[in-house]
Design a protein around this nucleic acid. Structure first.
Length: 285
DNA sequence: CACTTGACCTGTCCGC
DNA sequence: TGCGGACAGGTCAAGT
């Protein structure tokens, strides 16, 4: 489930629940989940506090009290589950459904003070939990484009970044995290529908009016999804936090064969930039 | 150089 | 019920 709205939702829940807690123990079930972890990680990490939690692009950042940082990417199937003695937590609310952590997909478990545990589950093992010194964090984060929900994403900025990918399809360009951070396959399709642009359009063919519509559409779609706490597929309903409800209001993603919400013609699914791509042949030009 | 494709890993779904 | 193939929310290295 993890594109920007989902990762932002998880970040907020983590921030609310784990800030200020002390790391008591760490259990590793899958070594390939770890990146750049020091050999003496137990001695380094145990006893440190979670100073703060933040997000940049699709990365979740855990700032530890001694200035070290965990950088976590959920990739396709990563989940962070909080479980306390009282049961599962999300934003302070007990979760129904995920009562079986740790399970065979649990790759990492971190025990915190106050009886709260973090479980990192990841079926496909693409996700990672990276260690980095705070001093080196900016180098890593600077590879990413502007945050779409903040003031840094403007039409001018987007058009400028897109000018580096003139021959690409607009779909491929928007999936590129250095153009704009946080979009993934679902929200690119949603954005392009709202902007009235076909996914296979070449960036070079776009006009100023298109860049304006694109910028607005990115912000509108992401904001709507964020309010809905993201998108949950049916088999992920019981993942992190309560299921996100953007799925119910999606415009085109996963709606091939169904009627376009705007013009009632049939939504098409094709392959663009190597990804399943959903769009309306009438509304998108 | 810029862009596209395959690989990473595991599960699910669909057709035969 | 079994088997093969396509596909899945992301990102890279490798190939064209």
């Amino acid at each position: 489930m993890p594109e920007l709205p989902e990762v932002e939702t998880i970040k907020k829940d983590l921030r609310k629940n784990i800030t200020g807690r002390t790391i008591k123990s760490i259990r590793i079930f899958n070594k390939s989940t770890l990146r750049d972890w020091p050999a003496n990680y137990r001695r380094m990490f145990i006893g440190q506090k979670i100073k703060s939690v933040d997000r940049r692009a699709k990365l979740i950042l855990f700032f530890l009290s001694q200035g070290d940082v965990w950088v976590v990417h959920l990739k396709m199937t990563g989940q962070i589950v909080l479980k306390s003695r009282l049961g599962l937590l999300s934003g302070g609310h007990p979760i129904v459904g995920v009562d079986n952590v740790p399970n065979k997909f649990t790759r990492l478990m971190i025990e915190l003070s106050g009886g709260l545990n973090i479980y990192f589950n990841d079926v496909r093992k693409f996700g990672y939990w990276q260690f980095i010194r705070q001093k080196r964090l900016p180098v890593l984060l600077n590879k990413y484009g502007p945050e779409p929900l903040g003031p840094s994403l403007t039409t001018k900025k987007l058009a400028g970044n897109l000018s580096r990918r003139l021959k690409s399809t607009i779909k491929a360009a928007l999936l590129d995290q250095s153009i704009v951070a946080g979009l993934g396959n679902i929200y690119v399709d949603e954005t392009l529908f709202l902007a009235g642009l076909r996914p296979e359009r070449r960036v070079a063919s776009l006009k100023q009016a298109d860049f304006i519509k694109l910028t607005k559409s990115i912000k509108v779609i992401l904001k709507k999804s964020l309010i809905a706490r993201g998108t949950s597929f049916s088999n992920y309903l019981d993942a992190v936090g309560r299921p996100g409800s953007y799925w119910q209001q999606r415009l085109v993603y996963g709606r091939s064969g169904q009627a376009c919400r705007r013009c009632h013609s049939v939504i098409i699914k094709s392959r663009v930039a190597g990804r399943g791509t959903h769009w309306c042949p009438i509304c998108q030009k």
